[in-house]
């Protein structure tokens, strides 16, 4: 009796085992072991800074493409890039680290807000409704979409104005905040030697007079900085100056030239002829 049971159950087990084996062989998914290896070295925060759905998706894309052209983990930086290059058998390229820079001065917060917003706490929603409390249709709204997007605790919000402050040491330059900002106020710029940077802290594309009316620190597109720049690093487009950080040699001639104080230089040691706004920007450290 026991023997019969053993034979019946045993043969059923053997039959299904065989079936599973055949199916496993027939529908086998061959996965490159490199995908797993690369996934291991990636940070695993799934921040989306690379433009893929997550860390594993990036690993798959790299293996599929065979090289790291256009694919990199901005959060992991050069260290992770070197590890990936080693797994893929490629040579690692050193890239300059980048950091998120808020291109808006908080000059408007010194004024009375021109309206009061009571709706949902979301910059994207407020932006879809109107210009925002400051009255500037280009600048920071201050409801913290970038703060919510940051996976690395690098952004803190000013409790009074809601204006974001980036911690240079924590920011990995993944670009999640750049994607989250509905007004594209945040830009990824090179970290610079000793975190020293010179940039136009304004994204207002209105004509000079109009921009000035909204904000005392707005870029009015006058072009003085572009003339002053000895390295041709500044271009004026749509009434707005932009400093190309690859060409900028940090001479700071433009900072002194700017009539509205829209160009700021951060983390430089105080200089007698430097603009007073420079030192204000240093306070977040």
């Amino acid at each position: 009796m026991i023997l019969a049971a053993v034979i019946v159950l045993g043969s059923i087990g053997a039959l299904f085992g065989l079936l599973l084996y055949v199916i496993a062989q027939k529908f086998k998914v061959i996965e490159d072991p490199k995908i797993d290896e690369i996934s291991e070295v990636l940070p695993g925060a799934n921040c989306g800074g690379c433009g893929k759905a997550g860390c594993r998706a990036l690993a798959e894309a790299i293996v599929k493409q065979g090289n790291t052209e256009g694919l990199k983990c901005p959060a992991g930086g050069n260290e992770v890039a070197a590890k990936i290059a080693k797994i893929m058998g490629l040579e690692a390229k050193e890239e300059e680290p980048v950091v998120a820079v808020i291109r808006c001065s908080i000059a408007c917060s010194a004024n009375e807000p021109k309206s009061h917003y009571q709706g949902m706490k979301s910059c994207a929603f407020a932006h879809s409704l109107y210009v925002g409390e400051s009255g500037c249709g280009y600048g920071c709204i201050g409801l913290g979409d970038c703060y919510n997007a940051c996976q690395f605790d690098a952004i803190t919000l000013d409790p009074k104005t809601g204006f974001p402050i980036v911690n240079d040491d924590k920011c990995v330059g993944c670009g999640a905040c750049v994607q989250a900002c509905p007004r594209k106020v945040i830009e990824l710029r090179n970290k610079g030697i000793k975190n020293r940077r010179v940039y136009v802290s304004c994204v207002n594309k209105e004509k000079g007079g109009v921009a000035r009316k909204t904000c005392s620190n707005a870029c009015i597109g006058c072009g003085k900085c572009a003339k002053a720049c000895p390295f041709d690093a500044i271009v004026i487009e749509n009434n707005l100056a932009y400093i190309d950080y690859k060409k900028c040699k940090m001479c700071r001639k433009c900072v002194a030239e700017c009539p509205t104080g829209a160009i700021v230089a951060v983390n430089f040691p105080p200089k007698p002829q430097a603009q007073p706004t420079d030192t204000n920007e240093n306070n977040d450290k």
Binding site: G119, M120, S128
Partner: peptide, 13 residues
């Protein structure tokens, strides 16, 4: 709850 705000936000997005 700002239900309509949230709905409008999502529709826009």
């Amino acid at each position: 709850k700002p239900l309509l705000d949230e709905i409008r936000f999502a529709k826009n997005k």
